[in-house]
C-alpha cells in the first residue's frame, strides 16, 4: 500500500529530516496560514510558495514525481469546486482554489515525509494535545495496516465463496456480516494487545528512544520559514 512509501521517506536522512518535529509543525502552520490568507489574484505569491516548497523538497532529497502525484490526491475535490467556481464566472478564484489546496497538501505531505509518525505524535503530545487522543492516534496508526489487510482478506474470501451470481440482498447481508466479524476480531485483538502490553509494563505512554530537543537550528528554521512566508505574503 502506498502509505508505506511515506513511512520509508520519513526515515531518510537530510537536514530537514534532522529537525525537531515541533519546529517543522510550527513552520507548516505559518506557511499554511500565509497561503490561506493570500488573495486569489496574487499569482506571483503562489509561484513563490511553490518555489519555497520545491527547494524544501530538493533539500529533503525526496522523489519529486512521487510527491507531486501524492499531493495531487487533493485535486479531485478541489477540481470539482474549482469547476463550479469557474462556471459561475470567477476564473481567477477557481484557479486560486486549486492552487491553494495543492500547495497546502504538498506542504503537509512534506512534513509527514520528513518526520516519522512517532516523532510527530510526540510533538503533538508536548504541544498539549489531550493524552487520550494521542494514545488513540498512536494505536490507530500502528494497527491500521494490520486490520485493513484483514479486511482485504475477508473481502477476497467472500468473493471467492459467492461468485458473481449472488443476489444483491445476499451480498448486502454478507457485507454486514463481514463488518460484524471484523468488529469482533478487532475487539478481541485489542484485548490481546492490551494484555500483552500490560505484561510488558505499559504505563500509559510510549517511551521515547531519543528525547526530542529543541535546538538553536530548530528555532532558526521555524523563524526563517515563518519570515519567508510572511515576506511573500506581504510583498507579492
Amino acid at each position: 500500500m502506498h502509505h508505506v512509501v511515506v513511512e520509508q521517506w520519513s526515515r531518510g536522512s537530510s537536514p530537514l529530516h534532522a529537525l525537531d518535529a515541533r519546529a517543522k509543525l510550527g513552520a507548516l502552520l505559518g506557511f499554511l496560514i500565509a497561503i490561506s490568507t493570500t488573495p486569489p489574484l496574487a499569482q506571483a505569491a503562489f509561484a513563490a510558495y511553490a518555489g519555497v516548497l520545491f527547494s524544501a523538497l530538493v533539500a529533503a532529497r525526496l522523489p519529486l514525481g512521487a510527491m507531486f502525484r501524492r499531493a495531487a490526491l487533493v485535486l479531485p475535490f478541489a477540481a470539482t469546486f474549482a469547476l463550479i467556481t469557474w462556471w459561475s464566472g470567477d476564473g481567477a478564484r477557481a484557479l486560486a482554489l486549486a492552487e491553494k489546496s495543492f500547495l497546502s497538501g504538498l506542504a503537509a505531505l512534506l512534513l509527514i515525509a520528513t518526520t516519522p509518525m512517532t516523532q510527530l505524535l510526540r510533538a503533538l503530545d508536548s504541544l498539549g494535545m489531550p493524552r487520550p487522543l494521542v494514545l488513540v492516534i498512536q494505536f490507530l496508526y500502528r494497527y491500521l495496516f494490520v486490520i485493513s489487510e484483514q479486511a482485504q482478506h475477508m473481502r477476497l474470501a467472500s468473493r471467492c465463496r459467492q461468485g458473481p451470481s449472488a443476489g444483491r440482498r445476499s451480498r448486502f447481508r454478507a457485507a454486514a456480516g463481514a463488518v460484524g466479524v471484523l468488529f469482533a476480531r478487532s475487539w478481541e485483538r485489542a484485548d490481546g494487545i492490551y494484555q500483552a502490553m500490560l505484561a510488558r509494563g505499559f504505563t500509559g505512554r510510549f517511551p521515547a528512544f531519543a528525547p526530542a530537543r529543541f535546538r538553536i537550528r530548530d528555532g532558526a528554521f521555524l523563524v526563517a520559514v515563518t519570515a519567508i512566508s510572511v515576506a511573500i505574503r506581504v510583498s507579492l
Binding site: 494514545l135 498512536q138 494505536f139 471484523l182 468488529f183 485489542a190 494487545i193
Partner: peptide, 15 residues
Amino acid sequence: RIPLLGVMGAFVFAA
C-alpha cells in the same frame, strides 16, 4: 482501555 479505541479506529478504516 483507552488504547483499545485506537484499534477500533483501525477497524472503522478497514470497514
